[in-house]
């Protein structure tokens, strides 16, 4: 146990926790987009992480191939994925609305296959790096924090806050929250549900695009990169209560810490195993999600 406690109080562990916190910001952003879509449209986009993957490619091509500066490249990526989200809704989701959940899951699962393989087809299987290094800065003598992680965290936090204000202050935001509580009567409020679905899909896509920009600062992109965080984002959303934005936000940080801690004491995979096990146990304690409201 000595080594355990040595480990626990080492500066590296503190650095690990800090990294977990910063990673949590990006996970929170990802779960926000997925949750929003589920809350409004009542469909889980199994292919959500693959949209992020395409967004990372968009950043890479805009910046590294076409030579755009980083900020415009990110703008291009966000718009591209927002458009992709809208197209996904019109072309696929709109046809399975109101169908059995199994068909909805499978339709978006088919899109997952499609996006992975078309990325392989177009971009190949090499790992591509955007190669923007912001360096890191020192907090104490031994603790360093990567600047790209910090930037990602801050942008994610600001975006989550911005979304909160949008949802609580604007007419559109009020309608988005309302439709998740009572779908049928929205028509009496003068809301065209299909238009709202389209807008939400574009917003959800845009959030995926933004997350892609932040992830591209830290990770290489390849066609299967979605698998490394996709399942995690589903778990976060379910644990927070599907469609519950605040619950998803908290769950994102819990999961990020679990993974960081697990991978600190063992391997990265064990971090993921730990997180998934906690998820399964949590589901048994609170089946509707840990932070779900009692109905």
């Amino acid at each position: 146990m000595e080594t355990f406690f040595d480990n626990l109080f080492s500066v590296f562990f503190i650095e690990t926790l800090l990294n977990g916190l910063l990673y949590g910001g990006v996970l929170a952003l990802l779960s926000l987009g997925l949750n929003l879509i589920f809350g409004v449209i009542d469909v889980v986009w199994i292919c959500y992480a693959e949209l992020v993957m395409l967004g990372m490619y968009a950043v890479y091509f805009a910046h590294n191939v076409y030579g755009l500066p980083m900020l415009p490249a990110c703008a291009v990526a966000i718009l591209a994925v927002a458009l992709l989200g809208y197209i996904l809704h019109r072309v696929v989701i709109a046809h399975v609305l109101g169908k059995a959940p199994i068909n909805q899951l499978l339709a978006t699962g088919g899109v997952l296959f499609f996006l992975q393989s078309i990325a392989t087809l177009i971009f190949g299987v090499e790992f591509l790096s955007v190669g923007v290094s912001l360096g890191s800065f020192q907090i104490t003598e031994d603790i360093y924090v990567s600047k790209s992680q910090l930037v990602a965290f801050i942008i994610a936090a600001v975006t989550v806050l911005g979304m909160y204000l949008f949802l609580s202050r604007s007419y559109m935001g009020a309608a988005i929250r309302a439709i998740s509580q009572d779908r049928e009567i929205m028509i009496l409020m003068g809301v065209d549900a299909n238009r709202l679905y389209g807008i939400t899909s574009a917003i959800g896509g845009g959030l995926a695009g933004l997350a892609a920009c932040l992830l591209a600062l830290q990770f290489d992109v390849h066609p299967f990169v979605g698998i490394s965080f996709g399942p995690l984002v589903f778990m976060i959303c379910v644990m927070g209560g599907l469609g519950n934005l605040v619950g998803g936000f908290i769950a994102a940080f819990v999961f990020a810490q679990l993974i960081a801690t697990g991978s600190y004491f063992a391997d990265l995979e064990w971090g993921a195993v730990l997180a998934f096990c906690v998820f399964v146990i949590a589901m048994f304690i609170r089946p509707e999600g840990l932070f779900a409201r009692k109905s």
Binding site: A175, Q181, M189, V191
Partner: peptide, 30 residues
């Protein structure tokens, strides 16, 4: 609803997890 027809549905059908004022706000959505 923009033609001037407003419908108070059976069982009220409020948005339960929104405040009174937010419910009223959704009524002004159009």
């Amino acid at each position: 609803v923009e033609m001037g027809i407003a419908h108070v549905p059976e069982n009220r059908r409020l948005f339960p997890r929104m405040s009174v004022e937010e419910n009223l706000r959704v009524g002004s959505f159009a």
